[in-house]
Design a protein around this nucleic acid. Structure first.
Lengths: 162, 162
DNA sequence: TTCGATGCAAATAGTTTGCATTCTA
DNA sequence: TAGAATGCAAACTATTTGCATCGAA
C-alpha cells in the first residue's frame, strides 16, 4: 500500500491526501449516530499520518499541538470508539502502555524484552502458526493484537545475565 | 484446597514431595546471600502446587491462608527475586494483571480475547515460528513470556460484533 | 549483630468513569 | 434543542518504592 505521491505535499504531512480518509471515517461515525468533532478529526489526522506506533499519551501530545484543550481521557474515549468501528487496533508491546495504529496496517510485532525494539512482521509470517492453532486447538489467532517477545539481534549478543 | 491431614497426603497437595524443591530453591537463595524467610517458603510452596496460572494477588491470597501477615508488596518483591533466579516466569495474558508460574513449565499461551480462556501450547508448537523469526529477522522468540491472542472455539461462534 | 527482608503507606503509571457543560446534527 | 462528546477531577488497577522495623545467618 504505497501512499499516492500526487498533487500536494508529497512528503511528511500529506494532509490533503489523508484528509479524505479522515472525513470518510467521520462519515461512518455520523452514520452510526455519532458526531464529527474537532478532537476526532485531529486524532484521525494524526493516526493517518506516517509514523511509529504511538501510545494514547503520545497521540494526545500530537493532537494538542493543533487542539490544545483535547484531554487525554477524550483521546482514550475516541480510540475506544475507533477501535469499535474497526479503524484502529491497539497492541500491548511489552510492559509499557498500549500502542495504537490503523487497523489497515495489519502486522504482528516482535518485541525485544531487553531494549524494547519492535520489529513488524507481516500477517503472513504468522500464517503457519495460525493454521496450526486452528487445527490443533481450534483457536483463531489474531496476530495483530499481541507482541511476540524475545531478543533482537543486538541484544542476543548480550550475556544472559541482567 | 485441602490442608494436609497429617503425615503423607500423597495426592493433591503433595507437600512432602514439593517441600524438597522448595528447600532447594531456598538453598540457592541463601547461596546468593539471600535469606530463607517464611513468606518465601510459603510462596514457593504455593507455586510448586498444581494449579492454573495465578496473579500476584491470587498468590497473595493463597499465601495469606498460611501466613496472614504477608503483604502483597512482599509477594511482588519475592516473585521478582524468584524470576531473577530463574525459578518463575511471568506472562502477560490479555489485559489483566500478569500471571506467574514455574519456569520449568515452559509453554506459550493462546488467550481468547473475548472470554479470557487460556490454552497452553507446548514450546514445540512455536518451533516453526521461532525458526522463521530467527532466520528472517534474526530475532530469538521467547514463547513463554507472551500470550497469543485470538478467539477460542466457543467464542469463534459468536457474531463479530461487540 | 548485621544486613537482607518485611509491613505499611504512599507514590506511580496507565486507564476508566461520573458529572456538569459544550457543541454537533 | 436533544443528546452525543468533552473537560476535568477523581477513582481505579496493577505495581513499585521509601522507610522504619524485624529476623535469619
Amino acid at each position: 500500500m504505497g501512499l499516492p505521491t500526487d498533487g500536494a505535499t508529497p512528503g511528511v504531512d500529506g494532509d490533503s491526501v489523508n484528509a479524505e480518509q479522515v472525513e470518510e471515517v467521520l462519515d461512518r461515525l455520523r452514520e452510526g449516530g455519532g458526531r464529527a468533532t474537532t478532537s476526532r478529526r485531529v486524532l484521525l489526522t494524526a493516526l493517518f499520518e506516517e509514523g511509529p506506533h504511538r501510545t494514547a499519551e503520545e497521540l494526545a501530545v500530537e493532537v494538542q499541538l493543533v487542539a490544545p484543550d483535547v484531554h487525554l481521557s477524550t483521546i482514550y474515549r475516541n480510540l475506544d470508539e475507533l477501535e469499535r468501528l474497526g479503524v484502529v487496533v491497539h497492541a500491548h508491546l511489552g510492559h509499557g502502555p498500549a500502542t495504537y495504529h490503523l487497523a489497515s496496517e495489519t502486522h504482528g510485532h516482535l518485541v525485544c524484552e531487553f531494549c524494547d525494539a519492535a520489529v513488524e512482521a507481516p500477517e503472513e509470517f504468522f500464517a503457519e502458526l495460525m493454521d496450526a492453532a486452528s487445527k490443533k486447538y481450534n483457536f483463531a489467532i489474531d496476530p495483530r493484537h499481541f507482541a511476540v517477545l524475545g531478543r533482537c539481534a543486538a541484544c542476543a549478543q548480550l550475556p544472559a545475565t541482567n
